[in-house]
């Protein structure tokens, strides 16, 4: 017993190091799968508030630019509004709408890491929960991965775990949107089957698909930069140039699909029946 205690006392630094190192490795590995959302992220109270203060100071330097963006978005929405068929009645009851939109401010953004996360200043107290879509006026941003009471952590499209259903505009050819961790302006659209002639050209627009219960259909993502075949030659691998400038984000919209629980329930039941 004496020897054991002596051994521990003599090697206490090494033992402490090994113990803490194992803890940190454990915490890192936990991050590996998407649905095991991380315990610790920048959406916690402390870092959220510090980033929030930081963002409110920095916000003043971009007011002109932000106004310009808002103006452009309003212009686009107004031209849409003026060109739809006028209906007799416009539903004022927002409870019957499928999608609900919450505005949020980006308090932390990263784009140079292999796995990027964005922190927004809306959290579970604003009814933001996991798996809500996040967009900006220009295009998609990512999916909410975890939320604390006042902040939420968003898995950016620039993340190796990101996998979003996307399609070519005005067609029904869909694939999954991933990121190869190389260029923060370019993401990859995979699994679109090989066809002759190819259903797309360089410069075509990529939008979100209808297969996802997170994003509404036809939210812009980017334009096609480059089309190549995958190694087996059976499907295309398309480089998509994002509409969003991921390096310069200030405001975002969080989208809640009211029918998502229903969809998930149905899918679960079908899976159980099999």
């Amino acid at each position: 017993m004496q020897r054991i205690i002596n051994f521990i006392l003599n090697n206490k630094n090494t033992l402490l190091y090994v113990l803490l190192f194992i803890i940190s490795i454990f915490l890192t590995i936990q991050n590996s799968s998407y649905h095991q959302a991380r315990y610790f992220n920048s959406a916690n109270w402390l870092s959220g508030n510090i980033y929030g203060m930081n963002a409110s100071v920095r916000g003043y330097f971009n007011l002109n630019e932000e106004n310009q963006k808002l103006l452009e978005e309003n212009q686009r929405l107004r031209s849409l509004l003026f060109n739809i068929d006028p209906r007799d009645t416009i539903e004022m009851d927002t409870a019957s709408l499928t999608y609900e939109v919450f505005p949020a401010r980006v308090v932390k953004n990263s784009y140079a890491e292999p796995d990027n996360y964005i922190t927004l200043d809306r959290g579970s107290s604003d009814s933001i929960v996991q798996d809500m879509g996040v967009i900006t006026s220009k295009g998609i941003l990512g999916i909410v991965e975890k939320s604390s009471s006042g902040f939420s952590s968003v898995q950016s499209v620039l993340n190796s775990k990101s996998n979003i259903n996307a399609k070519i505009l005005h067609t029904d050819y869909f694939g999954s949107l991933k990121w190869d961790q190389e260029d923060y302006r370019v993401v990859q659209l995979e699994d679109i089957p090989r066809l002759d002639p190819a259903p797309m050209k360089v410069g075509d627009t990529i939008v979100t698909g209808a297969m996802s219960s997170i994003f509404p259909e036809n939210i812009p993502i980017g334009t096609i930069d480059e089309i190549e075949l995958n190694q087996a030659g059976s499907s295309y691998k398309i480089n998509v140039h994002l509409f969003n400038d991921m390096t310069n984000l200030r405001y975002a919209y969080i989208i809640r699909n009211r029918k998502r629980p229903e969809v998930l329930n149905l899918e679960k039941e079908v899976a159980n029946d099999r």
Partner: peptide
């Protein structure tokens, strides 16, 4: 540093090793 950078515990492991 990890809490702020969303890197899980990579900085923790690295700075532990540096201290050791």
């Amino acid at each position: 540093v990890d809490l702020f950078s969303d890197t899980m515990a990579l900085h923790t492991a690295a700075s532990l090793t540096t201290a050791f």
